[in-house]
Amino acid sequence: MANDEGGGCCCGFCFRFIITSGFAALFLWLSLRTSSPKCSIQDFYVPALSLTHQSSNNHTLYFDLKLDNGMKDKGVRYDNISLTFYYGQNSSLPIGNYTVPGFYQGHGKKAHRKPSVEVRGVPWEAAIGAVSNGSRVAFRVGLVTRVRFKIVFWFTKRHNLVVGANVEVDGSGKKIKKKGIRLKSGAPEGRCSHVWIGLLLVLGVLVALL
């Protein structure tokens, strides 16, 4: 009888140990999991294409870049952020470049950078003719940087962040879309795969302990 009670106590202890270890593994994975900051173009203005305030000699492009660290428990350290602008959705010839100096962004913080860039190589006559006829013209914005994530007191290794998006402009000289335009990666999203990897790791720990 005593042996049965001892065996039951041992089994109960092992079961609690396995459950506790599983939750500890899950908590560790959640603590180390990171997500890339969201980059978007909030405002985009080309005065040369404005039919009401047109200035043929003003070839400046004004924009508002928003960087959003959605993680509530991790910071982001940006290297210098390189922005490249193109005229046309599929063009490979840049019309302008701008570099945002690197900086640190705290937990759950948002940052805006609102510079301007002088653009060259735009077929202005054709572009003005298009918006004058009620059409729209397209620009493309590409963003390249490397980021490190701060977890508690230490930083991870650098991760590449390469994103971009098309921005359509009409006769107001401004982007057509009222909301911000998210800069996205051409690579497929990996969030779901990360979730499955985490669950498999937890399952692996539980199996190893059984």
Score class of each variant (00 low, 15 high):
190 G>N: 15
141 V>F: 03
197 I>N: 04
60 T>F: 12
164 G>C: 06
13 F>S: 12
114 K>I: 06
154 W>V: 09
198 G>A: 14
4 D>V: 04
44 F>E: 00
52 T>H: 13
118 E>V: 12
83 L>R: 00
66 K>T: 15
130 A>C: 03
119 V>R: 00
120 R>A: 09
34 T>S: 13
137 V>K: 02
19 I>M: 10
115 P>C: 07
2 A>N: 06
12 G>Y: 03
10 C>S: 07
39 C>T: 09
8 G>F: 06
109 K>M: 09
56 S>N: 13
154 W>Q: 08
20 T>H: 10
179 K>T: 13
131 V>H: 02
94 P>Y: 03
199 L>E: 05
99 T>S: 05
147 V>H: 01
157 K>P: 01
178 K>T: 12
175 K>Q: 04
2 A>K: 02
79 D>E: 09
130 A>V: 06
143 L>T: 00
40 S>M: 03
28 L>H: 04
136 R>L: 08
35 S>I: 12
3 N>W: 10
107 H>F: 06
177 K>L: 09
82 S>L: 05
29 W>E: 15
113 R>L: 02
99 T>Q: 05
120 R>Q: 14
35 S>D: 13
77 R>Y: 07
78 Y>M: 01
80 N>D: 10
181 I>C: 02
22 G>N: 03
207 V>L: 13
48 A>S: 06
84 T>R: 03
200 L>D: 11
154 W>P: 05
170 D>Y: 01
18 I>W: 00
143 L>Q: 00
194 H>C: 14
34 T>P: 09
109 K>H: 07
16 R>G: 14
29 W>R: 10
17 F>I: 02
120 R>W: 13
2 A>V: 04
5 E>D: 14
3 N>Q: 12
19 I>G: 06
33 R>G: 12
58 N>F: 11
72 K>G: 08
72 K>A: 15
49 L>T: 01
204 G>D: 14
123 P>D: 07
49 L>G: 03
120 R>V: 08
152 V>S: 10
94 P>W: 07
38 K>N: 12
5 E>I: 10
170 D>G: 02
73 D>N: 15
137 V>A: 09
68 D>A: 08
82 S>W: 02
115 P>R: 08
200 L>E: 15
117 V>G: 04
28 L>Q: 06
117 V>A: 10
46 V>L: 06
61 L>H: 00
111 A>S: 11
89 Q>N: 13
53 H>C: 11
